[in-house]
Design a protein around this nucleic acid. Sequence first.
RNA 1: GCGCCCGUAGCUCAACUGGAUAGAGCACCGGACUUCUAAUCCGACGGUUGCAGGUUCGAGUCCUGCCGGGCGCGCCA
Length: 569
Amino acid sequence: MTNATTFGLDPLANRIITAIAPELGVSTADLQLERPREEKHGEFSLPCFRFSKATGKNPAQLAGDLADGFHLEGITAAAAGPFLNFKVDPALLASTVLEHARSIDFARTTSDETTVVEFSSPNIAKPMHVGHLRSTVIGAALARIYEHLGHNVVRINHLGDWGSQFGKLVAGWQRWGDASKLEADPIGHLLEIYVRYHKEEKDDESLPADAKKAFQELESGVDNETRQTWKQFTELSLREFQRTYARLGTEFDFLRGESWYEDKLQDTLDFLEAANILELDDGAWLVNLKSEGIKTPCLVKTAHGTTLYATRDLAAARSRWSEFQFDRCLYVVGSEQILHFNQLKATLKRAGESEWSDRIEHITFGLIRLTEGKLSTRSGLVLTLAEVLDRAAELAREIIAEKNPDLANAEQVAEQVAVGAIVFHDLKHQRQKDVVFDWKEVLSFEGDTGPYLQYTHARCCSILRKSEKAAPTWGEFDPALLPESRDLMVAIGRFPQAIREAAAKNEPMLIAQALLKIGQAGNSFYRNCSVLKAETPELGNARLAVMDSLRHVLAIGLGLLGVPTPKEM
RNA sequence: GCGCCCGUAGCUCAACUGGAUAGAGCACCGGACUUCUAAUCCGACGGUUGCAGGUUCGAGUCCUGCCGGGCGCGCCA
């Protein structure tokens, strides 16, 4: 449920729809305006094909008749063949958009829905690599977007801190562990052990046997030596993760690893048992999902008595439902786990929980590949997030030294630019597509990039800072003086819709694309129209309002994506 | 073998989910800094949307079949 406040181009679109809908015999809710492919056609368009049959006119004739009968102050309608196009008077356009563009509530709505977002979820004892970047950045952006739309958002970091891998790690630690190495570089040393384990397990049967035993000890719930070791690994890893989260500005409401659901595992198995869907197969317990169209059954307990990923995720889902009564629960996890989440939902459905299992949504994304090959923790081929951030920051420092050597806080700004470049680069692509990690592109600060938008924002700040007067508030300037701002007004005006669509499709890219349009139009505008040296004080005043609006909308949009907005750079 | 995803300019990506002459950035070429930050702006170049059919007023978008790439397919997560 959303409130009725409209922003940007919405009021104009609503006026047109209200005028046209009765002519077509449809309700205003059923009428949606499109944007013309070419800007010269105006701000809105309505293809008339689909109304041809009901009105008994051919589309071109219908468009023509509608245009003839259309009379709204400040908006003209013109038929272009079967298309009905609407052009808004520049003064009205600027006035409509600028009235609310600087509101702290710009493009904000209210809602009573609860949205749970699980994201990031790195594995303990392994480095956070570029593969985790996508989940972290997409999830954090979606959480902010839903929050902006008024949802009650719950952010959960589902850390991979449980499972047979810890048995392997403990078995390896007992053989090759080095306390001083662990202290100096915890994740580095644990990765070393993990890689060595996988190299040696084929030739050493005692290794997997010990690993299995260690995980059984861990799952026994007894506070034994294995558990102490696991606890130590977890704490050390978390400390390193927090450093990266701090750099990215990522926050969570709950840091709940898989282990957090440990005391709910038996209950989950009992629950499946009570639903009468558990089957014993070769010593292992599973749920058959053929009735749901899934050939691969969902394994919930191994023949040697330990739980599995699916067991813990089932427990987590049930726990979240009872705790949050969510309207939607998003899992921002790579597309390689599609089967897993289909199994999760199908199992819950078979257990009779379809009322809420349908609210679970797997937000997939393509994987990141290196030009050198596929990322693989086991083989040790990893590119850590920290390394990427460091390199970007180093490059940003060099560019600042060259372009703006007197900049105060150069170090801090370099970090902000680095984060902006990396985060934006990730979010400007459709989630679904695989991305090849290319240093040249990630470290690009020109064109369609985060730094480009940060720069635009900083320019606005600079102009506002150098102005002798504060930016005029609504009513203190004349929007009619801003015909050159047309493209920028349209770009800003479409931003609220971009946010709504980004949420509807769980696709932050739509915001990134909208911001690029705004940035391009903004750069063009202040290039052509001097603010501080405008021909008249009234003109400068009006343009100052545009600068302030541009700055504000960029700050909102970049903020939603997690791109920092330095005031100077 | 079966299932899901992706093929758009030399490269990286858009295209309002079926609408008009398929658009941006990078690269390359040309132009604009004694000028509110040139991390910028303006212009030029660049296309048989993987291939072949089908659906209809209209297809990059939907359906079928191929080709190419990726991911997944019982006791890992």
